[in-house]
Nucleic acid binder design. Structure first.
Lengths: 198, 198
DNA sequence: AAGTTATTGAACAACCTGTCTGAAACTGAG
DNA sequence: CTCAGTTTCAGACAGGTTGTTCAATAACTT
């Protein structure tokens, strides 16, 4: 009824093989045959499921994104008013579990398309949110909402990338969120010990 | 004495062709023949100058980076103490002049390698600077300097990318710098009209 | 157990790569 | 202007990758 067990397996092992190999050699260096070999699957099987490398990668990242959205939903609902840091925390937890894939995506593998799409979508949504809040509070924002959204999303992505790329035991997710919150509230000068300059 | 006029021409037109084509079709979709055709140069000539596509791209971006460093030097010297925004402003001006190339690099074309290398180099240098400042002022920073550097660099890159991707007459560079300065000093909540929450 | 569906290995043309020719065109120094 | 030294050029080459197709085999679902 659902889906043939074989197709599930094929798609799964192919995705896993892709992730492994991208981490080892980088996306562009890979051959479809490299992937099928690692997955222990015939090359013809690959083309039965995906148009090409890019397609496979797109599917894998789409799955990841869907999973993230699901996990983010309750956290976002909680922080509808103001910034609680809950969504960021949840994203960090998700990244810790799916570290390999996050690394790949955040490195901009595959032409950076998956990453850019994600970033642009986040930025658009955030900008919209900022505009709505400003209007609700009847404030003329000092900062272009579009720019503010880019700053906000850009810094989160940058920190996320840095965090998942760390090999040595890294800062706990809760600490990262605390620092981001701190920065959002007080700005950078204060954070780096330069109150005197402000 | 210097360099053969022909080699200069070949390298120049090949670089220009690459930029044009990447903007039109994306880096990975390109063929060496596509490039030589657009540049009106024989395919063999390409290989007389570059190992492959990646090599050409690396050369083009290296030139851009060298140009940027040169222009940034005086601005950086001026703002050795504190954050004046001068380097950012100079970078924005440079980006306005070399908009096509900036777009390509910031999109993460070519495996995102040129971009990631630039970002990582900036982040390392910035983190070092933050650490040095903290030590000089004998302050225990509330925020991990490494994380702070990622935030700082990440937001600039994000804004830069957004800025060069704009089609419609965009925010003037001076305004962008003012807003970034504002954010660095006061944080985001205040900037978006949420003082009440802080 | 039977019918359906997926996998397999092989073969295929089309394309791209990177290298190598020898001939022709160009350049810069004298 | 001449001439030796480079660079460009068109074409050919083997090697590898791509995406498609096919019939035989294996695995799955009901």
């Amino acid at each position: 009824m659902a889906e043939d067990r074989r197709t599930r397996r094929s798609r799964r092992v192919l995705g896993a093989a892709l992730v492994e190999l991208v981490l080892e050699r980088g996306f562009t260096a890979l051959t479809v045959e490299d992937i099928t070999e690692r997955a222990d699957v015939a090359r013809a099987t690959f083309y039965a499921h995906f148009r090409d490398k890019e397609d496979l990668f797109a599917c894998v990242t789409a799955d990841l994104l869907a999973e993230l959205s699901e996990r983010l939903a309750p956290a976002v609902a909680d922080s509808a008013i103001g910034f609680t840091g809950k969504p960021v925390l949840e994203m960090l937890r998700h990244a810790r579990e799916e570290r390999d894939l996050y690394r790949i995506v955040l490195r901009g593998e595959g032409d950076g398309k998956p990453l850019q799409m994600f970033v642009d979508a986040c930025a658009r949504a955030t900008a919209e949110e900022f505009r709505a809040r400003a209007e609700r509070n009847a404030v003329q924002p000092r900062i272009d909402p579009e720019l503010l959204a880019r700053v906000w999303v850009g810094e989160q992505i940058a920190v996320l990338r840095w965090w998942v790329e760390q090999d040595t035991p890294t800062l706990p997710a809760e600490e990262v969120v605390r620092m981001l919150l701190d920065l959002a509230l007080h700005g950078r000068y204060w954070a780096s010990g330069f109150e005197s300059l402000a």
